[in-house]
Design a protein around this nucleic acid. Structure first.
Length: 443
DNA sequence: TCTGGGGTCCTAGGACCC
DNA sequence: TCTGGGGTCCTAGGACCC
């Protein structure tokens, strides 16, 4: 029996001579909060996930106190009170806008950039690496760092390497090492082995919990050992993804820069409830609100959905209540992107999977099989409803765009929304809402 | 009492076909 | 002991990311 353990990676001719720079904001959400409140400087700060559930960002001071990433908030209550840690609900409007500012700043420094996440971007400086013999590339990165700090108030770390994965490694070390002062360049570095030895495999980009376990069983614990692993072994343990990762650690670029984001494959919108929900009416309200949000995103990208999935679930952590979760996949008769019709189907979906007698914790919708909105075909029996719904949706979009999202709502979303999530410690939307601008008092 | 949300890619296995 | 073999397509689930 043959198995495909041979290398199956085709490489571009310049795969060994690339140069990637990763700019990563430090403790991004916590840093955003700090920009607008100087009192938070040098103070422990944490930011919570939606519904004030988990801790998703920590300032260095909070990390030093032992607060872990992703820890449930309620389990840290004691330590938070004891040390007077500043707690924020997540303010995605603010973080999104701050992210835009950081990314706009970065475009000053390169023509080729991939916005990888809300707080990270890869810059292609392949054309610049000849400068490096004179140390200029590192200097260039220092200029980038200082500029972002000055223009946005956000501290960043910068890692440079021959591959994206090595840029990630360099970035991690830049953050950890005080001597690096936020910038580390690993391009053709004589210290490469030492650098890789300092990074444990769990911290390598693309190595998750499962792979850590497998690799440790093979005696591989740090990034240098992983780089030097046998090709067939890694192929067997981690498939093509693992092999690619190892190549990247060797300085052979397998992951290219994605300068324009590929079209979305699906759009999801879901939320945990602030309290348990039992009535079908409230579930319908919630799902209506979620699908409305998803539909706005859909239209922003000029897409229409052919498949709508609706799901609901009780609290999987709860031991006392009965457990039930279900989902339904609705193949729509034609691609849709107007909110009115999507709400109708979403509500139908909930009606079909709802079961009485359970205390629900979460529900959501997914839009899939997206096609360009221009390709929407109307059905034979459509008598103008689609046209009316389209116009209505357009008007609502326009008003919400000008007056702020949520100005006009569909009645089915409900107005009190007793199911909505907790966010007790929300900071103002300093940069996007006139009523919430930072005020400076004279006294 | 209280445990996020939104994505991507890959693989194994089943269905089906000739 | 001994089922045919080989291909494609689809889907569910795993693993990972921030």
């Amino acid at each position: 029996m043959f198995s495909t353990t041979t290398t199956a990676i085709t490489l571009p001719p310049d795969a060994r001579n690339r140069c990637f720079t990763l700019v990563d904001c430090n403790n991004f959400y916590a840093s955003c909060e700090r920009v607008f409140d100087p009192k938070l400087k040098k103070q422990p700060v944490i930011v919570l996930s939606n519904n004030d559930g988990c801790i998703v960002a920590r300032s260095e001071e909070a990390k030093a106190l032992g607060i872990g990433m992703g820890e449930p908030f309620f389990r840290c209550r004691d330590i938070i009170e004891k040390h007077g840690i500043h707690v924020f609900s997540s303010n995605y409007t603010l973080y999104g806008n701050m992210s835009e500012r950081v990314m706009n700043t970065l475009t000053q420094f390169t023509l080729e950039m991939e916005i990888y996440s809300i707080d990270e971007a890869f810059l292609d400086l392949s054309g610049c690496d000849h400068l490096d013999k004179h140390g200029d590339l590192t200097e260039y990165a220092r200029t980038i760092r200082a500029t972002v700090r000055q223009w946005t108030g956000i501290p960043v770390s910068i890692g440079i390497g021959r591959t994206k994965t090595l840029a990630k490694v360099a970035n991690r070390l830049a953050k950890k090492s005080a001597r690096a002062m936020g910038v580390l360049n690993l391009v053709d570095s004589p210290y490469m082995d030492k650098a890789l030895e300092r990074v444990c495999i769990a911290d390598v980009w693309g190595i998750g919990r499962r792979s850590v376990k497998k690799l440790k069983e093979k005696g591989v614990t740090n990034a240098r050992q992983l780089r030097d692993i046998d090709d067939r072994l890694i192929r067997k343990q981690m498939g093509i993804v693992g092999l690619r990762l190892v190549y990247e650690l060797r300085g052979i670029s397998c992951l290219s820069l994605e300068t324009c984001p590929p079209p979305r494959k699906g759009i999801m919108s879901s939320r945990s409830f602030g309290r348990k929900v039992e009535s079908p009416e409230e579930l319908k309200e919630a799902v209506t609100a979620y699908v409305t949000k998803a539909a706005v995103k859909l239209r922003e990208q000029n897409l229409a959905a052919q498949v709508l999935t609706v799901f609901l679930t009780t609290n999987p952590y709860s031991r006392d209540d009965g457990q039930y979760s279900n989902s339904i996949v609705l193949h729509l008769p034609t691609a849709i992107n107007n909110t009115v019709e999507l709400i109708r189907y979403a509500v139908q979906g909930i009606e079909r999977i709802f079961k009485k007698g359970f205390r629900y914790k979460k529900a959501g919708v997914m839009l899939d099989e997206l096609i360009p909105a221009g390709q929407i075909q109307t059905t034979l029996f459509d008598r103008g409803n689609a046209g009316r719904n389209k116009k209505l949706t357009e008007v609502i979009d326009m008003v919400n765009d000008i007056m702020g999202s949520g100005t006009l709502k569909y009645a089915a979303q409900g107005s009190a929304q007793p199911w909505s999530g907790k966010c007790k410690n929300l900071s103002p939307r300093y940069t996007t809402n006139w009523k919430e601008l930072l005020t400076v008092s004279a006294d």
